[in-house]
Each structure stands twice: as C-alpha cells, then as structure tokens.
Simulated assay, not measured.
Amino acid sequence: MNTKIYFRKLLSLVGLSLLLFACSDQSEEVQPSATIAQNAVTVTEITFTATALINECYGEDIRFTGIIENKVKKTNSASGQTHYIRQFTVKGMTAVGLETGTEFDVVGGAEMFSIKNPVYNADGSLNLSGSILGESDVVIHRGTLVFVSQEDGSHVIARHIITKNPGQGVKSNIWDCGGN
C-alpha cells in the first residue's frame, strides 16, 4: 500500500476515534461472551467496570460501571497477520468519584482498539495487557467518556490514548480531561 495513503487512512481512523470512542482502565479488560468468528462482527451487551485515571487533571479518579454495547471483529490478512478491532458505546452507566463520592451519570462515550497481531487467551478472547506489553506490533486506542455530576450538573470529559508502534514499544498511555 502506498505510504501516503496508509498514513492518510491512519490519521482518519485516529481523528474519528478521538471524536467517537471511549475508554477504560486497561487492567480490567472485558471479554465478549462468545468466541469471535473470523471476519464476523460479534455484538454483545455486557456489564463493564473500569476507572478513568484522571486524578492529575480533575482532582480524583472516577470509577464507572454499567452496560456497554461491545463490537468485536477479528480478521487475518493475506500475509497472515491478525487484526483485532473492538469498539464500544455506553448504553447505561453511572460513576462515582473515588475521593469525594460524587455520583455521575455517564451520558456519552465510546472506545476503539485496533491491534495488529494481538495476543489471545487460551479461550480465544483478547489478552489486552499481553497485546500492549507483549508481541503485538501496533496498538491504537482512543476513548472518550462524558460524566455529568448528579449533584450540580457539571461535566467532566475523560479521554484515554494508547499508542504502540513496531520496534518502539508503547509511545503513549495517557489520560486527560476537561469540563465546564
């Protein structure tokens, strides 16, 4: 593939994902309830719990839990490389500030993972930690969550970015946030 076209597609994917996809605490990977069929998209609604690690920019981390719609696709290229793509959108989530106890509604959010040559568990589910820290060549993750305080209606927007490139390891694994 032409390098210019490849980078244009990659930049488009990253840009879209920043606008559309949400994030989770990477230590708490949720697996789909069914084995992923080759070239098929598996869609499941699952309970998901994780922590937005935004203490440095918001003043406390926020733990969120609830239902997500999880979409997973696994493919193999003609050259034998495996590609894993996961997206989720929030369907009904709440959250709590881990220091103040402030309760939030999660009113928006989505996430995207794209992994080249992922690491799988014995049951065929994704081993996310193994993929990020192990042998996977490329990991791209972009996520955003929107929290609204049940107390005063203020908004907190949490973004998570993970990038790993071939031969360079994990280049970024950061959280940032904003609000009103």
Score class of each variant (00 low, 15 high):
residue 52 A to T: 04
residue 44 T to D: 08
residue 40 A to H: 06
residue 39 N to E: 13
residue 46 I to L: 10
residue 40 A to S: 14
residue 40 A to K: 14
residue 26 Q to C: 03
residue 48 F to C: 03
residue 24 S to E: 07
residue 20 L to I: 00
residue 33 S to K: 10
residue 53 L to R: 15
residue 42 T to L: 08
residue 60 E to P: 05
residue 32 P to E: 05
residue 38 Q to N: 15
residue 45 E to A: 03
residue 34 A to G: 12
residue 23 C to H: 09
residue 23 C to E: 06
residue 31 Q to R: 06
residue 34 A to H: 12
residue 35 T to E: 12
residue 30 V to I: 07
residue 37 A to D: 14
residue 42 T to Q: 09
residue 34 A to M: 11
residue 31 Q to F: 03
residue 31 Q to E: 09
residue 51 T to Y: 08
residue 49 T to D: 13
residue 56 E to Y: 04
residue 28 E to W: 09
residue 25 D to K: 03
residue 58 Y to E: 15
residue 47 T to K: 13
residue 56 E to I: 00
residue 42 T to R: 02
residue 40 A to V: 13
residue 33 S to E: 13
residue 38 Q to V: 14
residue 57 C to E: 11
residue 24 S to P: 00
residue 49 T to M: 09
residue 23 C to W: 00
residue 59 G to T: 02
residue 22 A to Q: 07
residue 55 N to A: 12
residue 38 Q to L: 15
residue 27 S to L: 10
residue 52 A to G: 14
residue 22 A to K: 00
residue 33 S to F: 02
residue 52 A to E: 09
residue 25 D to Q: 08
residue 46 I to G: 05
residue 41 V to P: 09
residue 33 S to G: 14
residue 56 E to D: 15
residue 34 A to Y: 08
residue 30 V to D: 07
residue 27 S to N: 09
residue 43 V to L: 01
residue 46 I to N: 05
residue 41 V to A: 14
residue 21 F to E: 06
residue 44 T to G: 03
residue 45 E to Q: 07
residue 49 T to Y: 06
residue 47 T to S: 14
residue 31 Q to T: 10
residue 44 T to R: 03
residue 53 L to E: 13
residue 57 C to W: 10
residue 50 A to M: 00
residue 52 A to S: 15
residue 25 D to L: 00
residue 22 A to C: 07
residue 39 N to Q: 13
residue 29 E to K: 04
residue 54 I to S: 13
residue 30 V to L: 01
residue 51 T to K: 12
residue 49 T to Q: 14
residue 21 F to W: 01
residue 25 D to C: 03
residue 23 C to M: 03
residue 49 T to A: 15
residue 54 I to Q: 05
residue 51 T to M: 05
residue 38 Q to A: 13
residue 45 E to S: 12
residue 31 Q to V: 04
residue 26 Q to M: 11
residue 40 A to Y: 08
residue 57 C to K: 06
residue 45 E to I: 02
residue 25 D to Y: 01
residue 43 V to T: 11
residue 50 A to S: 13
residue 44 T to S: 09
residue 35 T to I: 15
residue 42 T to N: 09
residue 41 V to G: 03
residue 50 A to I: 00
residue 39 N to G: 04
residue 52 A to V: 03
residue 49 T to N: 10
residue 53 L to N: 08
residue 29 E to P: 02
residue 58 Y to D: 13
residue 53 L to Q: 10
residue 53 L to C: 06
residue 41 V to S: 14
residue 30 V to T: 10
residue 56 E to Q: 09
residue 45 E to F: 00
residue 51 T to I: 15
residue 27 S to C: 05
residue 30 V to F: 02
residue 55 N to S: 12
residue 56 E to A: 12
residue 60 E to W: 05
residue 46 I to Q: 13
residue 38 Q to Y: 15
residue 23 C to I: 00
residue 31 Q to D: 04
residue 25 D to P: 01
residue 54 I to R: 05
residue 44 T to V: 02
residue 48 F to D: 10
residue 32 P to D: 05
residue 30 V to Y: 01
residue 60 E to H: 10
residue 32 P to S: 06
residue 55 N to M: 06
residue 60 E to A: 13
residue 39 N to T: 07
residue 59 G to E: 02
residue 34 A to E: 15
residue 56 E to F: 04
residue 29 E to N: 11
residue 48 F to S: 05
residue 55 N to F: 01
